[in-house]
């Protein structure tokens, strides 16, 4: 995982630095050539890219120094900028994931049990719509109807709210983010469970006297959760990337807006830090899911132990 992260940081750094247009302040008419030189020297922009890379890496590893913002928040350490934004974005993303999983599982189970009935068809229809329509469309629709027309929610994020109020003001973006993951989980679980229901151990569960519901709840669902853990990884990264756009629509001061403006500025250290942050989150998701396999599936937990 550390090696993966190192490769991502290296490639990310190189790509960002080698992008055209990296002569900072060069065309600023208010500054003299000497001033520009001083600034460039201060941020090591006058040195060759590999040297800059070494300086960056040394700062990050030895002092936890992510560099300093060079144009958006001039002089502010990058970490301080991120510190304010990360909680807002992660709040959205994680709440969205927390909503999507149970709702998706629930509707997937219902669709599987009522397979080939009107309930199943309706669910499948909704799933197709929610997967194929991008989240920002739902965001705009929700914003227009729920917030503007019916005035149930604030139109844009209210930064001063806390606790329940915060959830209330973030509910629309979270909902918009959750539609597609819910649909994905539903579709996946329906397919898995429909197969599990036909397995012999479900039949055995019924022949030993369990009702169909008991058999499905106790034997069916957990068995179909094992492969589901697999979809959680792409799902979470999907939520995070969706969140970049949604945050703009609802004016949420999170990572999304920051990322776009840091690229436009350009503010290299900031862009790089955001990139590293997102990579790190994705890697942690993978790790968590891998560990979750062991919890859900004893064959992985105990099987691994036996090999040692």
């Amino acid at each position: 995982m550390l090696i993966t992260l190192f490769i991502i940081v290296t490639i990310g750094f190189m790509v960002i630095r080698l992008m055209p247009g990296n002569t900072m302040y060069a065309d600023d008419p208010d500054m003299s050539a000497a001033q520009i030189e001083v600034l460039r020297a201060k941020y090591h922009l006058d040195k060759p890219v590999p040297v800059q890379y070494v300086i960056f890496l040394r700062g990050l590893l030895l002092e936890g120094d992510w560099g300093t913002s060079i144009s958006l928040y001039v002089g502010v350490p990058v970490w301080d900028v991120l510190k304010a934004k990360i909680p807002v974005s992660m709040y959205n993303n994680i709440v969205s994931l927390m909503i999507s999983l149970p709702l998706g599982i629930l509707s997937g189970v219902i669709a599987a049990i009522r397979k080939n009935t009107i309930v199943d068809y309706a669910t499948s229809f909704a799933v197709v719509i929610f997967i194929s329509v991008p989240s920002f469309i739902f965001a705009t629709l929700l914003q227009y109807f729920a917030a503007f027309k019916w005035r149930l929610f604030p139109i844009i994020y209210d930064a001063s709210a806390t606790g329940a109020g915060k959830l209330h003001s973030l509910l629309l973006p979270i909902l918009a983010l959750s539609f597609s993951p819910i649909a994905r989980v539903t579709r996946y679980l329906r397919a898995e469970l429909a197969e599990t229901i036909n397995s012999d151990f479900m039949l055995l569960a019924r022949t030993k006297g369990l009702t169909e519901t008991q058999a499905t709840l106790r034997h069916g669902i957990r068995n179909s959760l094992v492969p589901l853990a697999n979809v959680v990884i792409p799902m979470f990264t999907h939520i995070m990337s969706g969140s970049l756009v949604i945050e703009r629509i609802f004016s949420i001061p999170g990572m999304g807006g920051l990322m776009v403006s840091s690229i436009n500025a350009p503010d290299y250290p900031l862009t790089l830090a955001i990139l590293i942050f997102y990579s790190l989150v994705s890697l942690v998701t993978v790790l968590v899911v891998d560990l979750a396999y062991g919890v859900i599936d004893p064959r992985i937990r105990i099987g691994g132990r036996n090999i040692e």
Binding site: A205, T207, R218, H219, R222, N223, I296
Partner: peptide, 28 residues
């Protein structure tokens, strides 16, 4: 009661064996 043909697929792979036996007793 029924004894199945294939004991490999008739048992729930991720539930301890004991629980699969007691289940019939506690639930029904």
């Amino acid at each position: 009661s029924l004894v199945f043909q294939d004991p490999l697929s008739a048992l729930n792979p991720i539930m301890i064996v004991g629980k699969q036996i007691t289940e019939a007793l506690t639930l029904s």
